[in-house]
Every structure is written in C-alpha cells, then in structure tokens.
Write a protein that binds this DNA or RNA. Structure first.
Lengths: 119, 119
DNA sequence: AGGTTAAATAACCTTTCGGTTAAATACAGA
DNA sequence: TCTGTATTTAACCGAAAGGTTATTTAACCT
C-alpha cells in the first residue's frame, strides 16, 4: 500500500495543455477530437496527454461507438487538495501576520496625517 | 504578464524527494546538509532539487556564513490552492450525491430488515 | 597562509517527456 | 463488404529530468 499516487497527479498537472483539457472537462464530458480542437497539436499528442491524465486518475474514459468520451475524476483533485491542506495553516498564518501589520499601520495613521504628501 | 507560474510549481511538487523536503521545511528553516540527511542521495542531487523548488517559488534561501538556510514560501502553495479551488465544487458535488445515495439507502433499510441476511 | 566545512558547479549518463509522421485498429453506415 | 470517421499505436527525435563523481567556490577557524 501507500504507493506514491501524488507524483503522477502533480506531474500530469504540470503541463498547461493538460490543465486546459481538465478545465474543458470540468464543463462536461467530451470526445478526444473535441478536446483536441483548441490546440495546435497533432491528435497523437493529445492522445498521449489523455493517457497521462488517465494514469494519474484525473480523468476516466468511456466507450460510445467509435468515440471515447472523457470525463474528469474529481476525487483525484480532492487527493491533491488533501495534500495541500497540510500546508494551509502556513499561508493563513502569514496572512494573519499581514493583517496584524496593516492594523498597526492603521492605528499609527492619525499621527502621520499631519505630514504633507509627496507630489 | 500572465506567464505560466503554475507549471513549474506542479512540476516541482511531482517529485517525492522534493515534497519530503517541503514537509521538513514546514517545520522550520533548515540548512542544505540537514535537509539532505534523510536521503540516500548525493549532495549535488539535493542541491538540484532545491534549485527546482526555488525556481518554482516554493522555497527561498538566505545566507548565514557558509550555510544557506532554506525556508518554505507558503504563497506558492496558496497559488496552487487557488487553482484547485476552481474545481472544488466538482468533488463536493460528487460527495453530495454520495450522501444523497446513502440517505436513500438508509430510508430503504427498514424494508430490508425483514429479509434474512446471507451468511 | 592553511585546513575544514558547506554548498554549488561542471561534465557526464540514462531515462522520461512532449512532440512529430505514418500505420493500424475499431466501429458505423451505405 | 467497402468507406469514412475516431482514436490509438509504432517508431522516431530533441530536450529536459534526475542522478552520479570530480572540481570549485565561499566562508569560517586557527
């Protein structure tokens, strides 16, 4: 157990073409040809991208006649999110510090009012 | 503007060694040698991993005498989180459907009680 | 100045990635 | 059964990834 399922997911997401494909699939199922349409790229290239996404668990594919409709697999993104969650406090903490800083600036502001502003 | 800052971040996260380094840095600053210690890997290899993380904006490095302490840059992870947010409804939606399904199962359950259970 | 420690760089190697074109496969429909 | 349409597979290519060892740089400490 505990194989590294995250690496292939991150690797799949590291390509803008594949992220664009995911964005498209977030709107609904689509065939390979439809998915390929926006890109200036050969069909085999798209086919390879889809295979990468599939192996990462980010998409799944059905079969309808000669079409192989693709759909997004949200669970895979949820897995990524769960990894990220471990770090959430880090950026929220930093945000808190920024808020503290801004609050301090604001409480100082009245004193500063007397000074002229640089043109 | 609008350069692709996400690809290098995802690419950096696609390696388990680098994710382990990040996990370590989430606990606090660390020198390169300290970071290298848990891995069965040469120092230059670690050095390269750190460079990848740095270029992705995931870590930053200081200078203290002959040490180059590394620290995590939470903002980069926040950026990844923001990308992921666009898809959140997808997995939450699916979870809702599962909950609906389980609720239906439960309301059906009393009827099922009368049947014997398979051994 | 000389020696030690911390880290980066250079040069190299093998594997993987992202693309190509050409050929093969799978199915639908006349 | 032949033809067109959708998609994959095969073979190839150059570039990038991830590792190595050997060398270099940088800063500290006598």
């Amino acid at each position: 157990m505990a194989a590294d399922h995250l690496s292939p997911k991150f690797a799949a997401l590291a390509d803008p073409t594949r992220r664009a494909i995911l964005a498209r699939l977030a709107l609904g199922e689509s065939s390979v040809t439809e998915l390929a349409e926006p890109f200036d790229m050969s069909m085999p290239a798209i086919s390879k991208h889809l295979k990468v996404l599939e192996h990462a668990g980010l998409i799944a594919r059905g079969r309808e006649a000669q079409w192989r409709p693709c759909r997004i697999e949200p669970q895979a993104l949820k897995d990524v999110n769960e990894w990220l969650e471990e770090y959430r406090r880090l950026w929220e903490q930093r945000l808190d510090r920024l808020e503290d800083y801004l609050r301090k600036l604001q409480s100082k502001a009245p004193k500063e009012k007397k000074r002229g502003r640089k043109k």
